[in-house]
Write a protein that binds this DNA or RNA. Structure first.
Length: 300
DNA sequence: ACGCCTACCTGCTTGC
DNA sequence: TGCAAGCAGGTAGGCG
């Protein structure tokens, strides 16, 4: 389940392994993986001969920057993975898009459930979207899309130095939504998914159903620190692997062993021993300690 | 602004 | 053993 730490791991692996590589040919095995605005045939035609200059991450997407300034975005969603395969490696029945490199290797986009999407855009606009700006829909008739437009309505990057506690407080103050739902909302803050939302709330001792605007300054500070801490720890451990998450090196992460509440329903809270409770919030399973993360009647 | 629903997909686990 | 239902969860889009 790729969230920020898992996507960051993939991006770093790729940066190390495919920078400078040239794409000879592209094989699209599941058309819907290639998203608007590029029809699959055009996508393939426009990528032939392209050289990879750099790979990084934005929100939960891997950005593959090409030498000519264009950017390929890879949203892994649930089960997506980018894997570098050497010439002669056995084929993968779940490889949905295969980028054949001129050196004989393959960059494979593997995705069991086919939720992930790959796009190809003109460069530009990424810096601006780091700041708040008016939500603006991309005109449907436009031929050229800038990669920045893809992220125009996304929230701040929680690990950026510009993401201060004060800024977080200002955003939380205006919202009445429940903390769990807000943390998962990519227009509020990017990179946090179900695992790290539960972990951050446990760490900051906040109930998932607390209204964002009800937090005291001290609680905001705890949550701000917790979100950053759990994400940093995730990155340090190369992400959490449950079913089939792997980095581009093919190896699993180690962070699942460090998780404190996620998927520990019924097991003792690692702070107080109370059984971890599971509830459903916004259709998502949510794990928390009812004793460490109380929901006072006055806090609703 | 927000919650709720459905759709997108497949594999694994659970229950009969 | 077989089979079907349930579950997993990131995100877009629709509705109220």
């Amino acid at each position: 389940m790729p969230e920020l730490p898992e996507v960051e791991t993939v991006a770093r692996d790729l940066q190390r392994r495919v920078t400078g590589a040239t794409i000879a040919d592209v094989e699209v095995r599941w058309e819907r993986t290639v998203r608007h605005p590029q029809p699959p045939e055009r996508f393939v035609a426009e990528l032939g001969g392209a050289t990879i200059r750099r790979v990084d991450r934005r929100a939960k997407s891997v950005l593959i920057h090409l030498a000519d300034g264009r950017v390929m975005t890879v949203a892994l969603r649930m089960t997506g993975a980018l894997i570098v395969a050497d010439a002669g490696d056995p084929d993968d029945r779940y490889a949905r898009v295969v980028f054949h490199l001129t050196d004989g290797r393959q960059l494979r986009y593997r995705d069991v459930r086919k939720f992930g999407r790959i796009g190809l855009y003109e460069g530009g606009g990424l810096r601006m979207s780091a700041r708040r700006r008016p939500a603006r829909r991309v005109a449907e008739t436009r031929e050229v899309y800038r990669v920045g437009d893809v992220f125009a309505r996304h929230g701040p990057e929680p690990l950026a130095s510009s993401f201060s506690a004060a800024r977080f407080a200002a955003r939380l103050e205006r919202r009445s939504a429940r903390l769990k739902s807000l943390l998962l909302d990519q227009s509020f803050i990017v990179g946090v998914g179900n695992i790290y939302a539960d972990e951050a709330l446990w760490r900051s001792r906040l109930h998932p159903l607390r209204a964002a605007s009800s937090l005291t300054p001290a609680e905001v500070l705890r949550l701000h620190r917790a979100v950053r801490a759990v994400l940093r720890q995730g990155v340090a451990n190369r992400g959490a692997s449950f079913s089939d998450f792997v980095g581009a090196d093919g190896g699993p992460g180690a962070n699942q062993e460090r998780l404190q509440v996620y998927r520990r329903t019924g097991e003792p809270c690692l702070r107080c021993g109370t059984a971890v409770t599971r509830i459903v919030v916004g259709q998502r399973s949510t794990h928390f300690c009812p004793r460490c993360q109380p929901l006072g009647a006055s806090e609703r």
